[in-house]
Design a protein around this nucleic acid. Structure first.
Lengths: 228, 228
DNA sequence: TACACAACAAGTGAATGCACTTCCTATTAT
DNA sequence: ATAATAGGAAGTGCATTCACTTGTTGTGTA
């Protein structure tokens, strides 16, 4: 049995239960409680969350559209597995989208956000031995890429980047090492330097280089074939 | 009352009814039967298609995720309306994505596809007075951009381009003129020339220029404010 | 006349029930 | 012993029903 899921946000007024289920399962996938390849049944999830099958069914269709689960009619859903080719393609897209976002953000990002990111990066650099460093890093990574995407000034670019970052978070807990994360932090700092200098070209280059490294790092860690 | 929708594809085995409803409504939006701003109720659609509300509800959530309808909890859905800023942003994305696709397709597109596109383009150029020219053009436009996206070799790029092309098709019937379409055909030919010469840079440039013109053409034709 | 409020109509969201499909297992025949 | 098949268990998809929310209309009052 999969480790327990519980509905996170209290279902406040004007919010759908199916959205709460969606976010709960999303969190389950990102946090690693629901591992790739896991077969999930609507009834099981419904029992676990103490809701009916209807909102679970809805949530699964949304997750399928995000590419986080795979669904066939009349079959149970499975948490998405990634092949090396998938990961390669995913990072090709991230390089394109986030490179563009970094370029635009060099002009558009306001000083307050810039200062806040710098502050957090410094904090992380100075606390490398903390036990929860990996979690802190994950939060910072999320915030960093999101802030750049938002500062691009393009809502659609922001949205698409968020979508791909979601996929990234869906598997990146599987194979990361502390050294890899520390190196990634240095790359973030390089991007931050460029943003502060308002150097669009360099910001784009730094972002693409950063993602290029992760791409190379990850691609080898995934199977060539879809099965297991 | 909205002009009648009917379920298109026979619901073959292993296919969901909700998917059929989704495609039917998608077609309705693209073809213009469901105009932007139209308020659609689940019960009305369900009655019209002679199905229960369940698959309609499902289909609307999918369409909402595509950005083709807007939904609030406990409210009826409305067919998405676009502001000038939306259109601008949409085309910024298309330039980024399809520019990249054209660049990649210059190397990746096979000769047969290239020849077929050239053939169709020539046919269109020589039949400018046909009554159904606009429909022929729409089909060609769809095929052309799709072929390039596919030839990029990146499944995700292809998928995202298709999604944005869907949005494009959702409104482009509203304000196109015959002269505009003929000009667009010439631009397609320029892209085609570059692809045949395997000139990646020029293919990208031609694609971006092409979309740039449509962007400029469209942006002024949409209201600044979301309402009407 | 204008405004507030109550009752009702209409709609969505979730739960339940039902039909059909898929998968697993046990039994039987070779 | 193994393979094929039949039957049941489990699951999904759709329809229906119920609960609750929203918007509207009409009436009463200031």
């Amino acid at each position: 049995m999969v480790s327990t899921l519980t509905i996170q946000g209290a279902c406040r007024a004007g919010k759908r239960l199916s959205d709460a289920v969606y976010e709960t399962m999303l969190d389950g996938i990102i946090s690693g409680k629901l591992k790739p390849g896991t077969i999930v049944s609507e009834v099981a999830i419904a029992r676990q969350l103490q809701v009916s099958r209807t909102p679970v069914h809805d949530a699964l269709r949304q997750l399928a559209k995000d590419g986080l689960v795979r669904q066939r009619a009349n079959h149970r859903a499975v948490i998405a597995e990634f092949t090396a080719a998938d990961i390669h393609d995913l990072y090709q897209m991230r390089k394109l989208l986030e490179g563009e976002a970094a370029r635009l953000a060099a002009k558009g990002m306001d000083r307050a956000t810039l200062a806040h990111l710098r502050e957090t990066a410094d904090m992380l650099a100075q606390n490398r031995d903390r036990a929860d460093w990996t979690e802190l890093w994950a939060d910072f990574d999320e915030e960093f890429h999101n802030a750049i995407a938002k500062a691009s000034g393009s809502p659609r670019l922001w949205q698409d980047i968020a979508r791909y970052h979601l996929l990234h978070r869906g598997f990146n807990k599987l194979g990361t090492t502390p050294e890899g994360l520390e190196h990634a932090l240095e790359e973030h700092v390089r991007i931050l330097d460029a943003l502060e200098k308002r150097d669009a070209k360099e910001a784009q280059r730094a972002m693409v280089d950063h993602l290029q490294e992760w791409q190379a790092y990850f691609v080898n860690r995934f199977p060539k074939k879809p099965g297991n």
